[in-house]
Amino acid sequence: MTLTENVSAILHEKPYDYMPVVSFGFWNETLQKWAEEGHITNEEAQGYAQYGDNSPSDQSVMKKLGFDFNWNSCFVTNCGLSPTFEPQVLERRADQSYVMRDEQGLIVLQKDGIVSIPAEIGTTLTDRDVWEKEYLPKLQWNKNRVDFDALNRIKTQERTIPVGIHCGSLAGYMRNLLGFEQFCYLQADDEDLFAEIADTIAELCYQNTKTALESGVQFDYAHFWEDICFKNGPMISPDEFDQYFGRHYKRITDLLSEYGIDIVSVDCDGLIDALVPVWLKNGVNTMFPIEVGTWNASIASWRAQYGNRIKGVGGMNKTVFAKDFEAVDREIERLIPLIKAGGYIPCPDHRIAPDAKFENVQYYCSKLREACLKETK
């Protein structure tokens, strides 16, 4: 069986030859450190920083470590503002931090050398007038949002890994435009505007997905991005999430089904349990990643509740990469029963951080492959 056939068989709970070792990329700082240590080249580190997931540099680093492919290997369309805002520094502060308006119109506090998410201060999207003048015209569909040359390359080149279609982001991208506070307030302050923004973004995602599918490229899975949960749960109630976004998910997943795509994953950080039923109801069946986090998320509890309706990719505790081989061994031992239960492919949750030791990641890839082969014999 090919790698793609194995992935499909595992997630459809059919017999398979081997368990692929899946990646979710790296922090740029991680690859810089590994380049300084001599494990990879500077060109690989710089190439990943510039081109990201599934780039030649990503593939080269994964090969050295022992990963088979990056789940984030998706064809991506432009589902956002076009054009974006020109980044603009609005204020410089005495502590060397500065306030700026970013490409999405958010007002954020930043400081050079800090790589964490910037602190939100406000948003340009403050009312309906601004929405209609500054945002709505930039969220209209046109064919330039789809890279037809890239689609043709996918269609004509030999494929050695599964290739997904990225269907965009509904609530998550809306949050990127509004900021967390305004996203929450707007649901109460102006329900009509909240719904109009949601509908506009969703229509753009649908049209981009439809155009890519109509190109004739055969995709192996579909993927959404959200990031709308914290460690204690979602930033929107499940009922409102279903009200504003559920039917849009269903419309897109029904379209995917028409093209034979029945593995549909969503990347949403945080404690997502309250939203899982809404996703399942509306055609999303694969959770990626599955954050071990402080709440110990696991595919096991979801499978116990929802059966084989739910599938998963993720759930590997990447913090062991900063420790030793024994810690990696214990983590693999924890993963094996989850793998044996079916419908699940382990993957480090989120990008591998700078505290990871190159040799530990190599060891994980080798030992996981070895352990899974023993289980399939």
Rank of each mutant, 00 (worst) to 15 (best):
Q218E: 14
D262Q: 14
D269I: 00
I272S: 06
Y206Q: 10
H223E: 09
Q243V: 03
S257M: 03
K250N: 08
G270H: 01
F219Q: 10
Y221E: 04
V264K: 13
W225K: 00
Y249P: 00
D269F: 02
G216R: 09
V266R: 05
I252P: 08
P234Q: 07
L255E: 05
Y244Q: 06
C268I: 13
N208E: 09
N232M: 04
E226F: 00
R247T: 10
I228Y: 00
R247I: 07
V264E: 01
D262V: 01
S215Y: 13
I252L: 02
E240W: 09
H248N: 13
D227P: 03
D269K: 08
K210A: 14
T209S: 11
R251E: 00
F245M: 07
D242Y: 00
Y206C: 09
Y249L: 08
A212Y: 08
S257G: 14
D267W: 03
S265L: 11
D267Q: 09
Y244D: 02
N208I: 05
F241G: 01
D239A: 15
D239H: 14
I261A: 06
N232V: 09
P238I: 00
K231H: 03
D262H: 15
L255P: 11
Q243M: 13
P234V: 04
W225H: 13
R247H: 11
E226R: 01
Y221S: 08
P234G: 10
D239S: 15
P234F: 06
C268R: 06
I272D: 01
F224C: 07
Y259P: 05
F241R: 00
Q207L: 12
H223R: 09
E240T: 13
V264N: 07
E226M: 04
D227R: 03
V264D: 06
